[in-house]
Design a binder for these strands. Structure first.
Length: 514
RNA sequence: GGCGGCGUAGCUCAGUGGUAGAGCAGGGGAAUCAUAAUCCCUUGGUCGGCGGUUCAAAUCCGUCCGCCGCUACCA
């Protein structure tokens, strides 16, 4: 890749190692993966990173409760997340762990830089502390007993305590942040979270406590080993770790600033307020966009530990196939909003859109080539008006989808591809090659060739969403490895290639009880 | 409480001033190449209630009802 190639840097959140990966983690990973793959196929030089956030009191406590070394515990859960991403075919270029040496170096360097620039000072963090729980309790977590005293959720008594803490001068950045949002309306997406964050910043910012002395599992504050860095300063820095910070000569340094941070809406604020403020304080360029997506509910219920309804993405992929799961997650809801996972809608989408619409389109087209043309791809023939108008739709699909992807409309981009799928089914019925077989074999071949060209466009454009199945579909169409980029669509396939025997790629899903 | 969003066909939703739309589900028909898949046509809504602005409102304003989000150290 030369320097003229457009670079695209995209991140997932780093996942907190305090529980098993569930469908929400898979969703955020798949969404970022679709975008990363799309940009790669679009000819861009992509850096796609993910990782795990492994520090903090909760991790320390959970490991202790299980009677294992904190690092060993973090190793295990971090590996679970990497396995989940392999299971979901997530095409990351790197995986950052906050316990990596390189990350500790980056976080330490950032801390020093921000301190040097005068934005960190030593103060005191005041809060409610439960000695029995050995933890600070947030104001809103306190439970008021009938007699008026406040206690921890566990019922343990709490006391007001002060602990020394370093603070980041977040309050100094209010105006600069508002200016950032105003001058870069695309910095936060979609519009809902943007308004919320703007109004949050407008309401006034307090300085941020960025260190703790109450636990040890973290990155030591430089020159004050009693303190470890508190979560956000540590965690957000992972994005810089990935580009080799603070080593500006690192080959990846040119991948900063990041183009896109994909995050869940619950952590949008930290990415849209703290993160740019830290970077401004250090004099580092800001990312271009933070995009927040919504939550999944399960059969209409919120996913929660108490309900025990967290969905295991691996189990779903095993049952429905990975690509069907990826398709469903990207298709079911406008990216950005909340959505519901139900078995029924999963199966409906699989059968109607994948099996009936797309799978059957490929199968019916290719089987006619196999049966009537000896499996040989025909050359393009003379195009009728009908041929030309549907091929024109295929020709503009890449740019239409690219526009949607540019604005992170993953679902809408997919819908654009489906318009062509439906149009192709309509075309095949209108042209009825099975009837032409009896009257005009040449015209039949022309029609089947148009269909191959349409399906090739569809399969090429759907590779980011369903990489495994679309790989097979392109092979069935006679498209070679080097002919699968978006740019390659401009060169028609040469006729005469012998196509492999077509096989159904999206079987209908039938419930065993039915 | 404050700020913001939403409420459109049975379901999921699109539609920001000019005779109500898509997909799915329902009904009728065609075709039979294909994974009993496909295609065509079609039923269906006083666009949450009320009031206002306008020649004209789902679309602007007010108000009421219902649901939801945000309201910092919790990853």
């Amino acid at each position: 890749m030369d320097d003229m190639t457009r670079r695209f840097t995209i991140t997932t959140p780093i996942f907190y190692v305090n529980g098993a990966p569930h469908i929400g983690h898979a969703y955020t990973s798949i969404a970022a993966d679709v975008l990363a793959r799309f940009h790669r196929l679009n000819g861009e030089n992509v850096l796609f990173i993910s990782g795990t956030d492994e520090h903090g009191q909760k991790v320390e406590q959970t490991a202790a409760a299980q009677g294992i070394e904190t690092q060993a515990y973090a190793d295990k859960i971090s590996e679970d997340f990497r396995q989940m991403q392999r299971d979901m075919a997530i095409s990351t270029d790197d995986f950052i762990r906050t316990t990596d040496e390189r990350h500790k170096k980056a976080a330490t360097a950032l801390w020093n830089k921000v301190t040097e620039n005068g934005h960190i000072y030593l103060g005191a963090y005041e809060g409610w502390y439960s000695t029995r729980d050995e933890a600070f309790i947030g104001e809103d977590e306190l439970v008021t007993k009938p007699d008026g005293t406040k206690v921890a959720p566990s019922g343990a008594p709490v006391e007001r305590v002060k602990e020394p803490s370093y603070f980041f001068r977040l309050s100094d950045f209010q105006d600069r942040l508002l200016k950032l949002y105003e001058e870069n309306p695309d910095f936060i997406g979609p519009a809902g979270p943007r308004r919320e964050i703007e109004s949050f910043v407008k309401s006034g910012l307090r300085d941020l406590s960025v260190s703790r002395t109450s636990f040890k599992w973290g990155i030591p504050v430089p020159n004050d080993p009693d303190h470890v860095m508190y979560v956000w300063f540590d965690a957000l820095t992972n994005y810089l770790t990935a580009v080799g910070y603070p080593d500006l000569s690192d080959p990846r340094a040119k991948f900063w600033p990041a183009d896109l941070h994909i995050v869940g809406k619950e952590i949008a604020r930290f990415h849209c307020v703290y993160w740019p403020a830290f970077l401004m304080a250090a004099g580092i360029e800001l990312p271009k966009c933070v995009f927040a997506h919504g939550w999944w509910t399960v059969e209409g219920e919120k996913m929660s530990k108490s309900l025990g309804n967290a969905l295991d993405p691996k189990a779903l992929a095993d049952e429905f196939s990975l690509d069907a799961l990826r398709f469903f997650l990207m298709r079911e809801v406008p990216f950005g909003g909340d959505s519901n996972f139900s078995r029924r809608s999963m199966i409906t989408r699989m059968n109607v859109e994948l099996a009936n619409d797309l799978g059957n389109l490929a199968q019916r087209s290719l089987s006619q080539i196999a049966k009537n043309l000896g499996g040989v791809l025909p050359e393009r023939g003379v195009l009728t008006e009908d041929d030309q108008s549907i091929l024109a739709l295929a020709q503009i699909l890449p740019s239409i989808m690219a526009e949607q992807i540019e604005r992170k409309a993953i679902t809408e981009a997919l819908e654009e591809a489906w318009k062509l799928v439906r149009a192709a089914n309509s075309y095949i019925d209108r042209q009825a090659p099975w009837a032409l077989k009896k009257t005009n074999m040449d015209r039949m071949a022309d029609v089947l060739r148009v269909l191959v060209d349409l399906i090739r466009t569809i399969a090429t454009m759907l590779q980011p969403y369903m990489p495994i199945t679309m790989d097979k579909m392109l092979t069935q169409l006679g498209v070679e490895e080097g002919e699968r980029s978006f740019a390659a669509l401009e060169v028609p396939l040469p006729g005469g290639r012998v196509l492999p025997k077509p096989e159904g790629l999206f079987p209908r899903f039938v419930e065993e009880t039915e």
